Amino acid sequence: MKAKPQTPNPGHRPASDRLVDAATELFYQHGYRAIGVDEIAARSGVTKTTLYRYFESKDDLAAACLTRLALEDLDQLMAIAQQHPDDPVAQIRAIVSSAAVKVTQPGYRGWLLSNLEAEISDQDHPIRRVARLYKTRLRDHLVETARQAGFGAPASLADGLLLLIEGVGASWHSLGAVGPAAKLALSCELLMQGHRTVAHAA
């Protein structure tokens, strides 16, 4: 058995990765508008000149942060589908469970993508574009999974699940993990039960 690899020295990682790491952490802790490129460069251990060599602006860097997170989430959706290839209901439950677990993790501060999106009013801003693309793909995946599971009105179910999952992050800021977030799994089960009734009545 191979020995457990040591955590690589952050200084040995490519500068672009260190910038995305640092920006993601700072944006998550303090928000988008409160953080400037000076702080990001200092946290990542690179100069501002290097930062602008990789990213034209803070907007582009933020989009890179969210794109990486979105791709990780989409990869997780594919992994869940592979774990439950013949059970779309189990796939939906696993997606909900993953969201519910994140709320209880130390340092949780909501859904970064939605947190940053809420700070931006310009619909054509890079942050908004990444958010729109990711949420569209997530919704499409939920619609198709609900359809495969035989639920009535699968698009409506997908929308309801998205509202509940995203609502967890929004409610956490004021009510914490013991508020509505604690009932995410139950709320989603009740929603699915209602759509089973719709399917049986059709």
Rank of each mutant, 00 (worst) to 15 (best):
K102W: 08
L51S: 09
P106I: 15
L26H: 02
Y32N: 07
L77D: 03
S44E: 00
V37A: 06
V130H: 02
P85V: 14
Q123C: 05
R43S: 13
T50H: 04
V143H: 07
H125G: 13
L71H: 14
I80P: 07
Y52P: 02
Q29G: 05
A64I: 12
A70H: 14
D122G: 04
R129V: 15
D59I: 06
L66M: 13
A131M: 08
P85K: 12
D21L: 03
D122A: 09
Q105M: 09
D73Y: 08
L66K: 09
Y108G: 04
S121W: 10
Q82E: 12
L133M: 11
T104V: 08
D21Q: 12
H84E: 09
E39K: 14
A41V: 07
Q83T: 15
I35N: 01
A90T: 05
S114D: 07
A22K: 01
W111G: 00
A81V: 00
G36Y: 05
G31A: 07
D60Q: 08
L61P: 11
V103G: 09
R109G: 09
I35F: 01
L77F: 05
Y32R: 05
L77E: 00
L133A: 14
E25T: 05
P126W: 03
T104R: 01
D86W: 01
K58A: 06
D122H: 11
D38V: 12
I120L: 10
Q76L: 01
L66A: 12
W111N: 04
V20E: 03
D38P: 06
H125K: 15
A131C: 14
K135G: 04
L71V: 12
T104G: 11
D75T: 15
A62H: 10
H125C: 12
S44H: 01
N115M: 01
A34Q: 13
Y28L: 03
A90L: 01
A23S: 04
L113F: 00
R129D: 08
D86N: 12
V143R: 11
L138A: 06
Q83S: 14
G107Y: 14
A81I: 00
L66Y: 11
S57L: 09
I80Q: 07
A22T: 08
T50P: 09
K58R: 12
R137N: 10
I127S: 08
S114N: 09
S97K: 08
T49N: 03
L138M: 06
L142A: 10
S57K: 07
A62Q: 12
K102V: 14
N115Y: 00
V37E: 03
R137W: 13
T47L: 08
R128D: 13
D140H: 08
A64T: 15
V101W: 08
R43H: 08
L69M: 07
G110R: 06
D38N: 11
S44K: 00
M78R: 11
K48F: 08
D21G: 07
V20P: 06
A63W: 09
R137P: 05
L112K: 01
A70R: 12
D87F: 11
H125P: 14
R93T: 10
R132N: 13
W111A: 00
A70C: 15
S114W: 02
L26C: 04
S98N: 12
A100L: 04
L138Q: 08
V20W: 00
R132M: 11
L69P: 03
A100D: 06
V143G: 11
D86G: 14
